[in-house]
Design a protein around this nucleic acid. Structure first.
Lengths: 128, 128
DNA sequence: ACGATATTTCTATGAATGTCGAAATGATCT
DNA sequence: AGATCATTTCGACATTCATAGAAATATCGT
């Protein structure tokens, strides 16, 4: 309990990320790290209208993927990494009948180039 | 190169998973492993109309998340784990300004219960 | 309090999506 | 070839979503 995420939360998170503008926003915030970035800065970086950005920031916030804090006049948004890992974990739960908590079922941690190459030769597999 | 996924592919994958029925299907196939499961078996397990299931299987297939093969009269579907890891990797690319290939930026490999607990105490962080 | 700046809410519109019954297609077995 | 079984395609419907201009709200600095 506590570790596993509710399906509806995962669904909300995926839906939030399944949109080009929001995916761009989220990746920008992942890159920015915990310090985050102001709404205006995001709007400028991605060249989206303020109203449109606000719409998407709300969507990401409601999905729990990003956090908001105020700093002077600016609203700073940052990625919620904990939530993101929860979503990934949900996807690989019970991989090949095993429980995800038993260990790394999917090599989701960025593979080394060598591992990536050997992966190429092997047929699609689950990594179990 | 070849390891990184195109943004449009990631977007398609996320959109495909951002739907309750399809998420259920995919997780069922993740659990089934490389052996996969027949369309009819999936329809029965999830109690969805054949036409509806077919619609969603097409969506997942087009997104590259699942694979199809024939076995006698049945069409067997299985999860494409390689594609899934590609999507996850894309999300954590350039985490906090670093490249994902430099190492595990996000603890996306299922955390041990102990690690999960210590995570609870810390404020949201990126794991870098 | 006032003016300036940052962001959100309101409103409208065009486009895409999920669902399922009915019919059609494709594959198998005898 | 004919009968049967598994799955897909078609058609129609209601619902949801992305976008952005204009107005409203909130915060700050003086």
């Amino acid at each position: 309990m506590g570790v596993g995420m509710e399906k509806k939360d995962v669904l909300a998170g995926l839906a939030a990320l399944a949109q080009e503008t929001r995916l761009d926003i989220f990746r920008l915030l992942v890159e920015a790290g915990p310090e985050g970035r102001a709404a205006g800065s995001i709007a400028e970086a991605l060249a989206v209208a303020p109203a449109t950005l606000s719409f998407h920031l709300s969507a990401l916030t409601n999905a729990g993927l990003i956090l908001q804090r105020r700093e002077s006049r600016s609203l700073i948004y940052s990625a919620d990494f904990e939530r993101m890992t929860g979503i990934v974990g949900f996807l690989s739960e019970n991989c090949c009948g095993r429980s995800a908590s038993a260990g790394a079922c999917l090599p989701v941690c960025a593979p080394t180039p060598e591992a990536a190459n050997s992966e190429k030769t092997a047929s699609p597999r689950c990594g179990c």
